[in-house]
Design a binder for these strands. Structure first.
Lengths: 250, 250
DNA sequence: TATTCATTGTGTTATCAATACGCAATAAGA
DNA sequence: TCTTATTGCGTATTGATAACACAATGAATA
């Protein structure tokens, strides 16, 4: 079988391409139907995990995260942020490599330290792709993440905390929403990330006061009530405001 | 010579104790004479670097940072914070291992990824100790850091940025100052870290409003002017306030 | 067609925090 | 004793945040 040969070759000779002891894992956030989502992989043995990968000898750790992201989402120019490195000695304890011949000689045998990144992507543009070890790659509601391998649940938690903290300096809506969006949509994004309700009117006031939004003439029709305006980020004003550092203060 | 044998043994067999490819570097901050300081090492070849070390096979990356700290400062219970991982493929380019026999076989040969930590210590309690590769371990003013090896200058910059950002959530004075201190001393600490002047009266008002300081009956005499009160942190109130998250807002 | 209803857009007011100062008290030196 | 730089405490002003009122709208319903 071809895949078996591929796996065996990876186990025994992967260290010619990849640096041992260091890996990368990505918490990829998306926003859909008023819910914050993360992208998960299901291994052939049924267990769930975060998208991740290894670092090539001649590439930076950051670049290996970019590569992982591209391979799983088919997206370029992704907003990516290193958030923490996980280095417990037993973090990969488990049945890794079990039943695989020659695994004792593999470069994967001993412990790995993993550098965690989180990414913000536009949900509708993503086409999730499983890797060659996985059967499935799909979005999962942030509140319904199943048990993941190793310390990956902790990674999701930590990534969400860091995302929350960066909320005051980085208008994450720019990366998570579609180009055109309504004020209620933007508000629900913030409410979902912060996990608390915000006053509708004060939220709108604060967002508009930042001067980074452009109101379009269109409205979003089709809803059952008053049609809200559509907005988009004004890229120039957005970047000018970012340099001076936003202060949202939620 | 004994030291040469020790070095050779470390180069050839260190990987029995230490995990290759991953290292740890520490930016150790202290505060003395109104200046923020970092602890630096001078190698036998004259170059300066940050205190760092390697990760034992059975210890966590965090623990290896704690061990490094203890070995350089002879302190326990140090406030330590992982702040970034540095993983450029050429970050150790230079004359590492040059002129050392058998270096081609060493586990140190290829690239390392380094996990950066910063520490806050009480200057007066530290007894800087060089490691076995260094001649000297001493404090250096944050504004006068010389050229350091590899990417260590970038590490200092990044650590300072992160320290600044954490200033609003963590009253760093608790870790950097002596037990008893005056309000002007606390203010100058903040001014040094933020690199900007603060209004004396508003600073005092805000600090006292946090309710984590205890004013002592003593005053600090000996100065050329009005004797300021001495304060210390009220540990219970301090920790209670920390759980709810301080908001300093400088 | 008129009515109902949930939702949106735009205010106003009250409260709290941050900033900019004024001034008396004080310790050391002249 | 007087001067000087500094400390402790206080107030006025400004600005931001939080709480709430109300008219406008678009679809569903009677």
């Amino acid at each position: 079988m071809n895949r078996e040969k591929q796996l065996r070759d990876f186990l025994l000779h992967g260290d010619k391409i990849y640096m041992p002891r260091v890996s990368v894992d990505c918490v990829i956030f998306g926003f859909h139907e008023d819910q914050l989502k993360v992208l998960l992989l299901r291994w052939k043995d049924g267990r769930w995990c975060l998208p991740g990968g290894f670092v090539k000898w001649d590439e930076s750790v950051d670049d290996s995260a970019v590569r992982t992201l591209q391979e799983r989402t088919a997206l370029n120019n992704i907003y990516l942020q290193q958030f923490h490195t996980f280095g417990a000695p037993d973090r990969e304890r488990g049945k890794k490599l079990k039943d695989i011949p020659d695994s004792k000689k593999s470069w994967l045998r001993d412990r790995f330290v993993s550098v965690g990144y989180y990414a913000l992507v536009e949900f509708s543009k993503v086409h999730p792709l499983p890797d060659w070890l996985s059967d499935e790659c799909r979005w999962c509601d942030i509140h319904k993440v199943p048990a993941l391998i190793y310390d990956h649940n902790e990674m999701v938690e930590t990534a969400l905390e860091k995302l929350r903290m960066s909320l005051n300096d980085h208008p994450v809506g720019y990366n998570l929403l579609q180009e055109k969006f309504t004020m209620p949509e933007l508000q629900r994004l913030y409410e979902t990330i912060l996990d608390k309700p915000l006053d509708r009117r004060n939220f709108q006031k604060k967002m508009l006061s930042l001067g980074i939004l452009e109101r379009l003439k269109e409205r979003k029709t089709g809803g059952a009530h008053k049609a809200p305006f559509l907005y988009r980020f004004d890229k120039k004003k957005y970047e000018r405001a970012m340099k001076q550092g936003l202060k949202l203060g939620f």
